[in-house]
Simulated assay, not measured.
Amino acid sequence: MKGLDIGSDRVDELAATSAILLYSRQDCSTVYGTVHPVAQGKGGRATIGAGRPIERRALFECLRELAQNAAPKAEFLPETVLAVSQDAVMWWCRPATRRVFFDCQEIGRRSAVVLHPGLVFRAASNGFSVFALQEDSRPTPDSKLHEPPYFNTWDEGRICIGSAYVPKRIDVESIDGWESGFFESAFTHPNHGNKRVSHSNGEFAFWKKMLDGEYGEQFPKDALVTMNMTLGELIAGK
């Protein structure tokens, strides 16, 4: 394993030097820990040595160093980025026209450039999700989120990725890849759960009209279904 030596151009070899063993009760609550030296043997094999109780000060220092080295590097954030954490990136897409693809029995194999409302995307370690907005401008923490008016989505905005290609990384640089993975895959079916679009004849009729360009030059926002969640609550994980 190789890693960059912070503050220099030299690349250092990283090797295991110590191991921490945690002892827990049956309810998984940790009550004790030991630290063990690691000896490197022939052929890259490592041996864990005898342990000693972890010293409180040494443990805190170790955690501090790990947190410092694991912290993301500073980077420029475009105005579309709404929030960044250790395991998630959230961003906003302006209302725009984009191509969509359908491949289902009720609509057939169709593709067209259609209107889209403002959208909020969230790529995280626990999944990929999308939400719709009534606003045309950058949302605020008080902005109400709406159901994504798309097929292949579950409740709470979760996206069914299926065979779509999405980046392995979750960071600001990967935003375009996450968006492409969503829009360039075919919408195949409405998932079970809450209603995604408000239309008297259902979601298939709604998307047929969208594909035929019957809504004019603006996305029909009256078709959006309000969720009981604000952007601020989504960011806070409530």
Results as ranks from 00 to 15, higher is better:
173 E>R: 14
175 I>N: 02
175 I>V: 15
114 V>C: 10
174 S>L: 11
187 F>R: 10
154 W>G: 11
158 R>T: 08
126 N>K: 13
71 A>K: 01
172 V>W: 03
124 A>S: 15
70 A>Y: 00
151 F>D: 02
39 A>S: 10
119 L>C: 08
216 G>A: 01
154 W>Q: 13
189 H>A: 14
27 D>A: 07
168 K>Q: 10
58 A>D: 15
68 Q>D: 00
238 K>P: 00
35 V>G: 06
205 A>I: 01
123 A>V: 01
85 S>T: 15
58 A>F: 15
177 G>Y: 04
184 E>P: 00
127 G>M: 12
7 G>R: 07
150 Y>D: 08
50 A>N: 07
226 T>L: 04
10 R>N: 11
180 S>D: 10
74 A>M: 07
149 P>D: 02
106 E>R: 10
175 I>G: 04
209 K>W: 01
135 E>M: 03
127 G>N: 14
198 S>C: 13
24 S>P: 02
235 I>M: 15
205 A>W: 01
150 Y>R: 12
101 F>N: 12
156 E>C: 12
199 H>E: 11
151 F>H: 01
91 W>F: 12
187 F>N: 13
53 P>W: 09
154 W>M: 13
52 R>D: 06
234 L>S: 03
133 L>E: 06
96 A>H: 09
43 G>M: 09
198 S>F: 10
180 S>F: 09
97 T>P: 00
106 E>S: 07
73 K>V: 00
138 R>K: 15
170 I>E: 14
26 Q>R: 14
130 V>D: 02
75 E>Q: 15
13 E>M: 10
38 V>N: 03
46 A>N: 10
172 V>E: 01
60 F>C: 04
191 N>G: 05
73 K>M: 00
39 A>E: 12
33 G>Q: 05
13 E>K: 12
128 F>R: 02
181 G>N: 03
116 H>T: 03
171 D>W: 05
107 I>C: 05
180 S>H: 07
76 F>C: 07
14 L>P: 00
97 T>F: 04
217 E>R: 05
235 I>F: 13
57 R>S: 11
19 A>C: 11
237 G>I: 03
233 E>S: 13
52 R>A: 14
165 Y>R: 15
19 A>Y: 08
229 M>C: 14
